[in-house]
């Protein structure tokens, strides 16, 4: 998929097969104009993401299946900082994944944080997070991007940070533990449908049907 820009609207130019639904976290839309935007695809009871594919219960609505995939990332990100007090953890991003993480962690934050979870995958945001996190601290990468440009020297290397990559259920094959608040949270944060490729200004995640 590629992201274009018009004067007033962000426009996703999608080339999806009929019956395929693409889900995009709003944090993934920061990519430069013309760049690729990651997407979670749902088709014929299967999810594919980052080159991984998994079959889901055919009775499960696609939105819920996709949301569970995001939940898995969020849970793994939280597990990566399980030994850090929640108030010492900062979360970067405004998207659906970031929301799921914050929901688990509860209120935060202190400055500088001992750990930062990034869901944006934006190189500037990550570099900034590396600068902000305490020496010997932790940076959790939960954002979706193939590659980014990143200088590891000044902070990760010199200040002894730990950078932890968190995957998702498609790559682990392990279904997430669904917390009790999840259904209510999903109801309140349904994906916003993208019509004719135009991305609405509001919404933490988006759905586009081919």
């Amino acid at each position: 998929m590629s992201l274009g820009r018009s004067e007033e609207h962000r426009t996703l130019e999608l080339g999806l097969d009929p019956g395929t639904i693409a889900y995009v976290d709003s944090d993934w839309l920061h990519m430069a104009a013309g760049g690729l935007v990651p997407a979670l695809l749902c088709q014929n009871s299967s999810l594919s993401w980052d080159g991984f594919r998994a079959t889901v219960d055919s009775t499960m609505p696609p939105d819920r299946a996709a949301a569970l995939a995001f939940l898995d990332v969020a849970q793994e990100a939280v597990r990566a900082v399980a030994d850090v007090p929640a108030e010492q953890i900062d979360v970067l991003g405004d998207g659906f994944t970031a929301g799921l993480i914050r929901k688990q962690l509860g209120a935060n934050r202190v400055t500088p944080p001992l750990a930062i979870i990034d869901t944006t995958a934006h190189p500037i945001a990550i570099a900034d997070a590396a600068r902000r996190v305490r020496p010997l601290g932790r940076l959790v990468l939960a954002g979706a991007a193939e590659t980014i440009q990143l200088d590891l020297y000044p902070d990760v290397h010199v200040r002894g940070l730990r950078v932890v990559g968190v995957g998702h259920l498609l790559s682990s094959g392990i279904a997430p533990q669904v917390p009790s608040w999840f259904d209510e949270y999903l109801d309140a944060n349904e994906p916003v449908a993208i019509a004719r490729g135009e991305v609405p200004g509001l919404g933490s995640w988006f759905r586009f049907a081919g």
């Binding site: 080159g51 991984f52 995958a121 954002g143 991007a145 440009q149 590891l152 020297y153 990760v156 990559g165």
Partner: peptide, 29 residues
């Protein structure tokens, strides 16, 4: 090893998919 400049293609998706942990180990730490 001390990186001499930015990594142009920091393999984000691979690091996530493999659930890797990168540990900075400059002597300054």
């Amino acid at each position: 090893g001390s990186p001499r400049g930015a990594t142009r293609h920091f393999p984000m998706s691979q690091i996530r998919a493999k659930r890797l942990e990168l540990v900075g180990a400059h002597v300054e730490t």
